[in-house]
Simulated assay, not measured.
Amino acid sequence: MTVETLPLVSTLGVILAGGRSSRMGVDKSTLQLSGASFLEQAIKRFSELGISNYVISSNRIDGALTDRLPQIGPLGALDALMHRADRLVGVDSIVVVPIDMPLFPADGIKQLCEYGNEKQTSCYYQNHPMPFFIWLDACFAQILTKQIDAGILSVRALLEKLSAKELKYVNDQQRQNSFFNVNTPEQMQQIQSWLQN
């Protein structure tokens, strides 16, 4: 599917690939689907949107952004990013996509970016805290630090603190399966069977 390229030079893409993959048994970023790894597919979706500036959050992938604070999930990736000023030059927003949602389409990311950049606000999809878009206003780093210090590590709680807008998901293709998470070999088999039908 071809998606119209957006002028997203000031939006940084973040690929969350730092999970332990304990239930899967292998690093999920290396899983193959339709001839490409999950990581390759995530990078391709950003490329389709004109997002050439991206980081991979992982403690296992060479050159990736590593956590300063271990084992606190997606907020750990955001914390690490906020402490890398070199990666934030010219950046006013970030869009965060987990590695284990391989069916989430580029146009779904596009909707988040278009709304978030136009309104200069954080946003996500109704009933689905991931993927999500963060507008990097002056308060973001402080709010993130307070959440981590309080031990409140859920993405949904962070989005609520940011007064993020909840958007309706509009996508005709793979509507039912876009948000499907692959965490186990059985879920990998399920997703492969969907693509074969």
Score class of each variant (00 low, 15 high):
1 M>V: 13
1 M>Q: 14
1 M>G: 14
3 V>K: 10
6 L>P: 08
6 L>C: 08
7 P>C: 06
9 V>H: 15
9 V>T: 13
9 V>K: 15
9 V>N: 15
16 L>R: 05
17 A>I: 02
18 G>E: 05
18 G>Y: 04
20 R>I: 10
20 R>Y: 13
22 S>F: 15
23 R>P: 01
24 M>F: 15
25 G>P: 09
26 V>N: 11
27 D>R: 15
29 S>Q: 05
32 Q>C: 08
33 L>W: 09
33 L>Q: 03
33 L>H: 06
36 A>N: 05
36 A>P: 01
38 F>L: 05
40 E>T: 01
40 E>D: 03
42 A>P: 04
47 S>E: 13
48 E>G: 05
48 E>A: 11
53 N>W: 07
55 V>T: 03
55 V>W: 02
57 S>Q: 14
57 S>Y: 15
59 N>A: 11
64 A>H: 07
64 A>N: 04
65 L>T: 00
65 L>D: 00
66 T>K: 15
69 L>P: 02
69 L>N: 08
78 L>S: 06
81 L>N: 06
84 R>P: 00
86 D>Y: 12
88 L>V: 11
88 L>Q: 07
90 G>H: 12
91 V>E: 01
91 V>T: 07
94 I>Y: 03
94 I>F: 03
103 L>S: 12
107 D>C: 11
113 C>G: 09
114 E>T: 12
114 E>D: 07
116 G>P: 05
117 N>T: 13
119 K>M: 11
120 Q>E: 10
125 Y>D: 02
127 N>W: 00
128 H>G: 03
130 M>N: 09
133 F>N: 02
133 F>K: 03
133 F>W: 02
134 I>P: 01
135 W>G: 00
136 L>P: 02
138 A>Q: 11
138 A>W: 08
141 A>C: 07
142 Q>H: 12
142 Q>K: 13
147 Q>T: 04
148 I>D: 03
150 A>S: 10
152 I>Q: 09
157 A>K: 04
158 L>D: 01
159 L>P: 00
159 L>R: 01
161 K>A: 12
166 E>L: 10
167 L>G: 09
169 Y>A: 07
171 N>K: 13
176 Q>G: 15
177 N>W: 15
178 S>V: 15
178 S>F: 14
179 F>K: 03
179 F>Q: 04
184 T>W: 04
184 T>V: 05
185 P>V: 08
189 Q>V: 14
191 I>Y: 06
194 W>S: 07
195 L>K: 11
195 L>I: 12
195 L>R: 11
196 Q>C: 10
